[in-house]
C-alpha cells in the first residue's frame, strides 16, 4: 500500500534523471542529486564517554568525532561534525527510521537525543574539474585541496543559502567531489544558482546516486 504512494523529491520537477549523462565530456561542472539519503541529527555530550561509546556502537562502530568540521566516513555511514555537541548521521536512503530508533535507544540513557531530519534536506553533488570554481562563486569557505581535505565538512552559505558541505572524494580520482546537504525549500534555487555559476565552464547533469568513487555511502 505505502509503496504506491508517490514521494516527491525537492528537485523532481527538474527531470534530472532524464537529463543525466554518464559522459560529462568537456563540461567543467558536474551536478547531481542524491534523493532521500537518511539524515539524523545526533546531540550529546562528547565528554560523556558512555554516550560516545553508545553512539559509536549504534552506528556500526563509527564514533562521533570531536574534531570540528570533519566527518568520519565509513562504508554505510557518514558522520559529520556540526557543533561541539551535534552531529549529522548520513546513511542509505530508507534506513532512517530503523537507524534513528536504534540510535535513540542507545544514547537516550546517556543524555543523547536523536531527531530524524531526513526530509529536511536533499543532497546536491558538485564534482568535475571546475567544481571548486563554481562553488567559490557563492561560498566563502576556502576549498583549496590542502585546506578542505577529503572528509572535511563545513556549514556555511552558498549563494546566501545555508548548506552543509562535505568533501566526498578521497583525492585519488581526477576530480574533486562535494556533497551539499541543502534545505529542501531552497534546493531549487540553489540548483539554478549552480547551473548559472557553472555556465562558463559547461555544466553536465550526472547520475550521482551510485557513482562509485572514494568511500562512503555509495
Amino acid at each position: 500500500m505505502a509503496d504506491a504512494i508517490p514521494r516527491l523529491g525537492a528537485l523532481d520537477h527538474l527531470g534530472l534523471a532524464a537529463r543525466a549523462t554518464a559522459e560529462p565530456g568537456a563540461a567543467g561542472v558536474w551536478l547531481g542529486e542524491r534523493r532521500f539519503l537518511a539524515k539524523i541529527n545526533l546531540r550529546g555530550d562528547p565528554q560523556n564517554a558512555a554516550f560516545m561509546q553508545a553512539a559509536g556502537a549504534a552506528l556500526d562502530g563509527v564514533q562521533p568525532t570531536t574534531a570540528p568540521n570533519t566527518a568520519v566516513r565509513a562504508a554505510a555511514i557518514d558522520l559529520l561534525w556540526l557543533g561541539p555537541d551535534e552531529w549529522l548521521v548520513v546513511a542509505a536512503a530508507g534506513s532512517e527510521a530503523a537507524l534513528a530508533a536504534r540510535l535513540a535507544a542507545a544514547v537516550a540513557p546517556h543524555g543523547g537525543t536523536v531527531t530524524d531530519v531526513t526530509e529536511s534536506r536533499t543532497t546536491i553533488t558538485v564534482s568535475g574539474p571546475r567544481a571548486r570554481d563554481a562553488l567559490a562563486k557563492g561560498c566563502p569557505i576556502d576549498l583549496h585541496p590542502r585546506r578542505f581535505r577529503p572528509g572535511d565538512c563545513a556549514q556555511s552559505l552558498l549563494a546566501r543559502v545555508g548548506v552543509i558541505l562535505l568533501r566526498a572524494d578521497d583525492a585519488t580520482g581526477p576530480v574533486p567531489r562535494f556533497e551539499l546537504h541543502v534545505l529542501r525549500s531552497m534546493a531549487d534555487y540553489l540548483w539554478r544558482f549552480l547551473e548559472d555559476a557553472g555556465q562558463e565552464y559547461g555544466v553536465a547533469v550526472v547520475e550521482s546516486e551510485d557513482r562509485s568513487q572514494g568511500s562512503g555511502i555509495r
Binding site: 549563494a159 534545505l183 531549487d188 540553489l190 539554478r192
Partner: peptide
C-alpha cells in the same frame, strides 16, 4: 530569477 533565494 536569482535575486533572492526563493523557498518552496
Amino acid at each position: 530569477a536569482l535575486l533572492d533565494p526563493a523557498r518552496w
